[in-house]
């Protein structure tokens, strides 16, 4: 139980730190890196807190006090899951979600409903759908998974490795060529 209390408390602290960092400084691609650094910085603090505090934290009933080593392992697992599957995904969805951006564009439009052409043109506050795709290509270039030369995009050896792994996974879970659509 101590692990659940400590991980929950540190998640709140982490969310507060991320919010301050986003509002004060970080922009663009630096945000995900900053989030990871903040997570890696707070993880040792959390472990230290676990080692320095009593097993019952002063209020947990004896029946809920567990082996300290198991609690420590659970603590690290809970906090890592909250970061990787929780806050980082919340950020990814808010910053890059395709369907989400479409829903926001339609809900904020001043006309009564939008056609497919309207959605394409007004995507992301008027930047358009080509901007969305160019952003993905730019990210792949930055990750060195593709190279661009004379308007041709070529997969690097690393990109081909990633493609092979995901292609196998997609076949394994029987995904269509274009894939199901994400919400």
């Amino acid at each position: 139980m101590k692990a659940i209390f400590l991980a929950s408390a540190m998640c709140l602290v982490y969310l507060a730190l991320v919010t301050v960092a986003f509002r004060l400084a970080a922009s663009g691609a630096k945000r995900a890196r900053l989030m990871t650094l903040l997570f890696l910085g707070t993880l040792p603090i959390l472990v230290t807190l676990h080692l320095l505090t009593p097993p019952d934290l002063g209020f947990i009933p004896p029946a809920l006090v567990e082996n300290p080593e198991v609690e420590l392992a659970l603590l690290v697992f809970l906090y890592s899951s909250s970061f990787l599957g929780g806050v980082l995904q919340l950020y990814n969805l808010a910053d890059r979600g395709f369907s989400l951006r479409i829903a926001i564009d339609i809900s904020q439009s001043h006309v009564d409903g939008m056609t497919v052409t309207d959605v394409i043109q007004s995507y992301s506050d008027g930047k358009g759908i080509n901007w969305m795709y160019q952003k993905r290509i730019d990210d792949l270039v930055e990750l060195k998974l593709v190279e661009i030369e004379d308007d041709r995009v070529t997969a690097t050896p690393e990109g081909l490795q990633v493609a092979a792994r995901f292609s196998w996974l997609r076949n394994f879970i029987r995904v269509e060529a274009t894939g199901p659509h994400r919400e």
């Binding site: 998974l145 081909l160 292609s167 894939g179």
Partner: peptide
Amino acid sequence: TVASLSIQTLILLRDAVGQSLR
């Protein structure tokens, strides 16, 4: 795995001639 446009782009490039497309 199933919906990322970046992953689908890499797979399309892998299957293209010369692993390259305009």
